[in-house]
Amino acid sequence: MSSTQSAVRSHAEAVQVSRTIDYLGLFILFFVILGGFHVHAMLTMGDWDFWSDWKDRRLWVTVTPIMLVTFPAAVQAIVWEHFRIGFGATLCCIALVLGEWINRYFNFWGWTYFPINIVFPAILTPGAILLDGVLILTNSYLATAVFGATAFALVFYPCNWVIIAGLHMPVEYHGILMSIADISGYHYVRTGTPEYIRMIEKGTLRTFGKDVAPVSAFFSAFVCILIYFIWHFIGRWYGTTKFLQQT
């Protein structure tokens, strides 16, 4: 067969081959990204995501978007430019949340018996959709970094509010003011339970009371813009098509 002759025999077969490769490619991309992103997520912000008594108004709100805008930025940099796929960030976050939910149900609950309402993962998809939406509408990585990454961080707390609000209700317990989440955490003792390990509500910002979450979210949004830029170029680097030696 000539080297220039097509490997397929008809236009119809070319379409079938192309579709099959698309499905296989999406499966591979989804699960490889899931693995890498999940390792990154659990070891950079995992403790805040594992336990509801870590999901505070300050560090959870700050750390989670900053750490999770990374892979979406890197994936967007390649899949939008090379393949015109406009759902890179959503794919990353859905993959991550799927991996987290499977784990929380079958392992946190299924193996070590923590109730699901202590170990549920954060909701990430709305921010990811906004990130993708800005990229699709503007076709600009700069606009995506400035507006998309900002939105990614700002919507994080409101999107999770419906699931976390009840657990932030204040209660008096043995004369001490706590939240429902705190009490749940103290009832389910973990090897990491000591209060000095639990990094929540640190610093004096909490004295401002009601303003803690918005201030944290805006700070997170600012850092997310910078992180988006950095990870955009990290994504480009990993998206290289170079060969180490040409023979």
Partner: peptide, 20 residues
């Protein structure tokens, strides 16, 4: 991809809850 999922995602985060 399948092997990476089980190793890097499923059994790695599982490690967190076992050691907690």
């Amino acid at each position: 991809a399948n092997a990476v999922y089980w190793g890097a995602s499923y059994f790695t985060e599982q490690d967190g809850t076992w050691h907690q």
